[in-house]
């Protein structure tokens, strides 16, 4: 039974374009006892963590997703004929980390923290779906409020916002810089 469950879960993760949460798996497999699902998933993860496979299952944005291994990057790029993947611009990265650490946040608050107009960068980030609009602030002008999206977590390989670099890690960087 467990082996059957394992293959089903594997199929569900494979077909998902976004990280698949345990909650969603359980919703789909409602005929099965949740405990069995937990166990089957655990076993599946163990199978995939072996060195014999080119594909791994990683935890990302609170869910599970298939990914290749970092060491195979160059071969994949050769196949797809991609020189390199695009990185975020310095302005985009700055704006993004401002939002990540101060969310929910409005455009004018972001611009104040960065001390520079961030409307253009914000638009780019929205297009890339790394941030999302979550509502309007109840203040004059009712400005839009922004938050980071699940895609933001996946992009940086984070499981949740609590995995953002901590104050200690940041202080360490600052000390090194001096």
């Amino acid at each position: 039974m467990n082996n059957r469950l394992k293959t089903i879960i594997e199929a569900l993760i494979f077909i998902s374009q976004k990280p698949l949460t345990l909650e969603k798996i359980k919703n789909v497999l409602k005929e099965f006892p949740p405990k069995d699902i937990d166990q089957a998933l655990e076993e599946l993860l163990q199978n995939f963590s072996s060195n014999e496979r080119g594909i791994q299952i990683i935890r990302s944005a609170g869910g599970y997703i298939f990914a290749t291994k970092p060491e195979d990057d160059r071969w994949i790029r050769r196949l797809l004929r991609i020189e390199r993947k695009n990185k975020l611009s310095p302005a985009a990265l700055e704006t993004l980390s401002t939002i990540a650490y101060h969310q929910p946040i409005t455009l004018s608050e972001i611009s104040a923290l960065r001390d520079t107009d961030s409307s253009h960068t914000l638009k780019t980030l929205l297009q890339k779906k790394l941030i999302k609009i979550v509502g309007r602030k109840k203040s004059p002008g009712r400005p839009l409020i922004y938050r980071t999206s699940d895609k933001f977590l996946t992009y940086f390989g984070l499981n949740s916002l609590s995995e953002l670099p901590t104050q200690e890690e940041i202080s360490k960087i600052l000390e090194e810089g001096e």
């Binding site: 976004k18 291994k69 990057d73 993004l96 390989g157 960087i173």
Partner: peptide, 16 residues
Amino acid sequence: LLRKKEAEELLKWKRT
């Protein structure tokens, strides 16, 4: 720090 994470993540190719 996020830049470092980005670099690590870009090496993993996903279904997305």
